[in-house]
Design a protein around this nucleic acid. Structure first.
Lengths: 151, 151
DNA sequence: AATTCCATCATACTTTAGTACCAAAAACAG
DNA sequence: CTGTTTTTGGTACTAAAGTATGATGGAATT
């Protein structure tokens, strides 16, 4: 792709060179150009080919790559600690409950959110606590955050 | 600065043009160059000035800058949000209690830690809740963390 | 001296959280 | 199909949390 691009430019350059030479030759033959007008022609050619050189340069030259390192604040970790999560053997519901717990939900709130009875939530919460080896919701939330299993 | 740079190149270009014209003139006078050799000269001039054009282009033209942004992880904010903290008008004790609350401490734990009675802790906790406009310790912890007033 | 705020503690009461034990569908793996 | 795990729910009870109200003493402010 890049090679073809370069080659394209070289080809174009050659064609333009050939055409200009031909035009010059034709002008010489057509108008019997005077010897002392040769400088003007040379000047024109010089100008033209300078322009051509500039154009070729802009097209062919590889751009300078400038690497800028930007320090961006990234939350400590995008991803949850799956390893620690699996160690606890929490099932889907228990994990859901844990997440709501960390949002400050009461058992009644969680029950409403998940369309379950408070009894069920209490069961899940109790099982969650024993699996996490804690004794209260605040401890559970604290531990979960420190382990990185919830954000 | 940039203007002077550009001007410098234009000046250089002019000087080189003048010198080359002079050299050409000198060669014409010195060796009585033949008419049919003119194409060679023109070709040489074309080549030279193309090269010149390329060189000028590389020097003058602003390089195409390809910016690569690399995200760098920066540790979460070291400092607490003092502004939000002051808005709540928490006193020393209430803030202490809040910190212990977020570590999963029960009222009894906090009482033992601060050498106070559970009654006192309950008072502080109640005042804290009304100041923070929450109804439970888990809500308080969640709000405090979201506001960034505790780590 | 009076006022305000902070910190302490108490009592009484209500609500919520948490434990223990049980039970029964539902989902799922062997 | 059978045994296991998950999910659901209940009752009964205990522990802890949370509310309301009041009291006391100290420190700083006016």
């Amino acid at each position: 792709m890049n090679r073809w691009n370069d080659f394209k430019h070289i080809l174009l350059y050659g064609i333009i060179l050939a055409v200009l030479t031909f035009v010059l030759k034709w002008l010489q033959w057509r108008f019997f150009i005077l010897d002392n007008a040769i400088e003007i022609y040379i000047g024109l050619v010089a100008l033209l080919f300078t322009a051509l050189g500039v154009w070729v340069a802009t097209q062919v030259l590889t751009p300078k790559v400038q690497t800028i390192v930007i320090e961006k604040k990234v939350p400590e970790s995008f991803f949850l600690n799956e390893t620690e999560l699996q160690k606890l053997h929490l099932n889907r519901r228990e994990f859901e409950v844990l997440q709501l717990l960390s949002s400050g939900y009461s058992n009644a709130d969680i029950a409403k959110t998940l369309f379950l009875s408070v009894s069920t939530i209490k069961s899940h919460v109790s099982n969650l606590f024993s699996k996490m080896d804690v004794k209260s919701r605040t401890q559970a939330v604290d531990k979960a955050k420190r382990l990185g299993i919830i954000k």
